[in-house]
Design a protein around this nucleic acid. Structure first.
Lengths: 218, 218, 218, 218
DNA sequence: CATGAATGAGAATTCATTCAT
DNA sequence: AATGAATGAATTCTCATTCAT
């Protein structure tokens, strides 16, 4: 069950697209452009992605792009909308984590889902985390992650953590760790076996943040 | 003692600078350009930084820049050289971390030094971690951090960590956490009190990675 | 009959042009740029020709140029391709020159055709002969002329020339004379009546290189 | 005796130099700059020659150049002055060429001297012949060569040349041939034995322009 | 005298965006 | 709906020339 539900992949489109009613062909082109955007943003980053690259990747012409999006930012936003939403529901899914084995499993499963989400949306998320985006767009990203931070802060606060741990700070640290780690694996293509990754991260996070007993020592 | 010794800030300069003999004034200008680079890279990121911005910040003219560096990359490299070196010596400083209170203190001190290094070199480090740099430059960054990862993997392996933790993976997670956290604080200007930050991170990392006892629960 | 057939003037275009499919308008612009190149190269020489000048002369904007050619060199090459070809077929046309009146007429006709070719392609040829072009481009020119030198060497060797004449050297001398003379006339605008020019050159060359009898002395 | 007398190599210098009285060291630097100019102009042509290149070649600093010459043009002019002078005296040396063996020898000797002059001054002359120079400077060149053309026209007119040869046109052709041929040999480094070259050119020119009997046919 | 330092007017090129077919 | 064509602002880099030490 490591797939987050993302039934209706963004069919939004930018301002130009919304001002017309799209027919079958139009919707197809729109989808191709969104997909192409994902691909190109991932490989080149936001600034380096050329509208031309995206159009070429989508197999349409340069001008067509502007039939659907007012500019690059809008395409990005369309992609980002999805992510924000998914990120929020993922945050919502994160229930209390107790310090026992059950908490460990809950956490591990959740990390699995987070990894799945990340790997699909890496292009967008990694643009957020770089300073490589117009400030405008970065605000989106901040919102997406801040929900997560809030929930995490609550979970940490609930747990029997050491007294010198500040929940908000801890939550930020938690997000830092998983965001960046997934970035290394997904974007920088550092190879780690999925199981190893989940075992290790879950154990560390459970122990470090949620009072988990480190269990059988080696 | 939260300041790393960085007496001799890079006075290297790029190819053009090395091909001339600099007099007092020249050396001064070189230093101003390096400093300006740091400033501008920090506020705008590598790609968005204009050579013009840097020159203006340094209070020199456009063309003067090219008297000292062949291009933006070279300026960046000059800055990076410093960081690589400091990062390596910081890695070397990280001795064994035991699971007791002494290990905790060692770790906390080291994190303090890391934060100091980061805050001074944020512009450079944050460029490395974004995909926002020519691949050429990123290799530098990879080297700098991989030393750190290696040392950490060794320290984790030594410690009485849970059996399902893979030291290499853990090391990556450790670096992810501290790099990104400091990024948020330094570049994104998220406000956290220094003490809170050190207490929280040290406690979490000690507990999560080095078998530290979480100490007095709340 | 002093016009060489050059029906299909180069419609090639540079790399960017070849990567798009040109419509009627595009082809027109391409042609205008090529023609503008010819004009500007002729009046300013290769190095002094500004891409802006060429664009202006073609009545298009700056950026449009780069829709058709990657840079000045490519435009030049497109022009040069034509010349090389024409030069080679002109070389092939040069049959044996006997020492009698018929040889004289053959030679005079050929010089006429050479002059026609030269006047149309002066901008390109004169760039070749100056050291004023990237070495890359000069190689093209060397090939074009060396064919001519080869044929001429053969013709001179066939003719009853004095024993102390080296055919290869003579061929070079021949090409030197006609190339430079036409340069002076075409590019430097030295005024000489066409007939006078052809009469004089044909007579001199026939006598000097092909054993022609100087005919009725004055 | 194939060396033209060029006892007093230009010691003129540009405006700045003339406004000061040069002492020993100054004169030495001036000479080094002139020599460096020759070298650099030869290898790169006028436009491509950088003041920096010249200064470096002369072993002085950038700024020093401007102590002696107001700009690149002036350096070139200083070099050219010599050539004009030598060219004129070489023109003056060219006496009548009869159609016999004596005329042949006279011509051959003169060509030898021309070749010597050319090889020493190739940088300057080849700049003249390219369109690669400010029009200002080219006028100089035109003067230098036009003297030669005038003398040659006279010599051709005197000789028993065919009636359809126009002396002025012939003179231009003559100059074209020898200028360009020497260019190929000197600048483009086409290898031809000196004797072969002189024999061939002298014979061709004697026969073609001065009614010389082609002598022993092969 | 000599030389390092600084300047700024160009020149080439790229690319997002608008337009016409 | 699609696409080729055109544009021009923005950017990097070069280099002749002037200045200060």
């Amino acid at each position: 069950m490591s797939e987050t539900s993302r039934a209706n992949s963004s069919t939004a489109g930018g301002t130009p697209a919304r001002e017309r009613k799209l027919r079958a062909q139009g919707r197809r082109t729109l989808r191709k452009l969104l997909e192409a955007g994902r691909t190109v943003f991932e490989s080149k980053g936001f600034r380096e992605a050329r509208v031309d690259d995206i159009a070429a990747e989508a197999g349409t012409s340069h001008g067509t792009f502007y039939l659907y999006f007012a500019n690059k930012d809008e395409l990005f936003e369309a992609l980002a909308a999805d992510v924000v939403e998914e990120m929020q529901s993922l945050a919502a899914e994160l229930g209390p984590i107790d310090s026992g084995e059950e908490g460990y499993r809950t956490l591990r499963d959740w990390l699995d889902r987070f990894a799945a989400l990340y790997s699909h949306h890496a292009p967008v998320i990694s643009v957020w985390q770089s300073s490589d985006a117009p400030t405008q767009l970065m605000r989106l990203g901040r919102h997406a992650l801040s929900d997560l931070v809030d929930v995490l802060a609550k979970r940490v606060a609930e747990s029997p953590a050491p007294h010198d741990i500040d929940p908000d700070t801890a939550a930020m640290a938690f997000v830092s760790l998983i965001e960046r780690f997934n970035y290394l694996v997904t974007v920088r293509r550092l190879h780690v076996r999925r199981d190893t990754m989940l075992d290790t991260l879950a154990r560390i996070l459970h122990t470090g943040f949620f009072g988990g007993d480190a269990g059988g020592r080696s």
